[in-house]
Design a binder for these strands. Structure first.
Lengths: 151, 151
DNA sequence: AAGTACGTTAAGTATTGACTGAACGGTCTG
DNA sequence: CAGACCGTTCAGTCAATACTTAACGTACTT
């Protein structure tokens, strides 16, 4: 980690990811992998990020579970290496799109729980339902378009 | 708050909003206003949500600041009433789109901090930049389309 | 088989952050 | 002017959570 600018990039990534309700170290890990030119071992990551191996272990596994990082292994080496998974951004965004569906489901639930008569509440919930269904579908279409542009 | 289904709707809204790194009470407040057929006073909100007036005051003001709720006043009444602002969902989503710009800016920052030679890191950062620029523009276009559909 | 290297798990700690209770400032009423 | 009402602010409390240290399980090496 010689370059202080890169270090700052990693820190900013940590803060950005923290706003997604994820550990800051998780974001730093992701940032570090982003600017790495080769897969990094767990020990290397712990060293560069100045955190314990336990923390790296937890966050790296989480990172892998959500499809952002990949665990790669090398012949004749017991260590785990990690790098960025292809399409990690789409994956990250796809995950966020799910919240649109959650909101749409919530709106439907709300509609079911109030009376059938026209009311401000009903109108709002209907608009909410329509909006989140629209956004959910359209953003998924966007991701599809992006994938096609790349592939 | 007679209806337990509505109560559950409010709770779910609290949890959903909490994942956006916002106070749970903030989400409950928003949910309550969603199903209210008239503007609610600060005291009413505190009573229905079973939280202190101080908490409602803080969260309601925050809710107003980010454009989700509106403070409405009534002639001859000193109290503050709140209801849902028109276009609150668009506004909420627009705010989330800003994170795309943040990520795009971060990618640009990262590119500036690494060498100019082709490398895996550079390729990833370029893809990141392209992706978030694409998403930022297109999602904004989606919001525009929605607005036109409504207006 | 003992020793070593690696990753995971568990208990303990520290920090962050949201809520409560209480005090305050301001405005209207009697 | 005294008293009540309303909203805000501040200090203190409490809970959630992410990190560290330490112990463990496993597999490879000599």
């Amino acid at each position: 980690m010689p370059n202080p600018e890169i270090e700052q990039f990693i820190e900013r990534m940590g803060l950005a990811v923290e706003r997604l309700s994820l550990p800051r170290t998780f974001g730093r890990l992701f940032g570090l992998l982003m600017v790495a030119d080769r897969p990094l071992s767990l020990a290397e990551i712990a060293d560069q990020l100045q955190v314990s191996k336990a923390s790296v272990s937890t966050n790296a596994r989480l990172c892998e579970q959500v499809g952002l990082a990949r665990r790669v292994s090398t012949r004749g080496d017991r260590r785990d290496f990690y790098d960025i998974a292809p399409g990690s951004f789409e994956h990250m965004t796809r995950h966020r799109v799910e919240s649109f569906h959650v909101m749409a489901g919530l709106a439907a639930e709300g509609l079911a729980s109030i009376g059938d008569e026209p009311s401000p509440a009903r109108a709002r919930l209907e608009e909410m339902l329509g909006f989140y269904m629209f956004m959910g579908e359209e953003v998924e279409a966007l991701l599809e378009r992006w994938r096609e542009m790349k592939g």
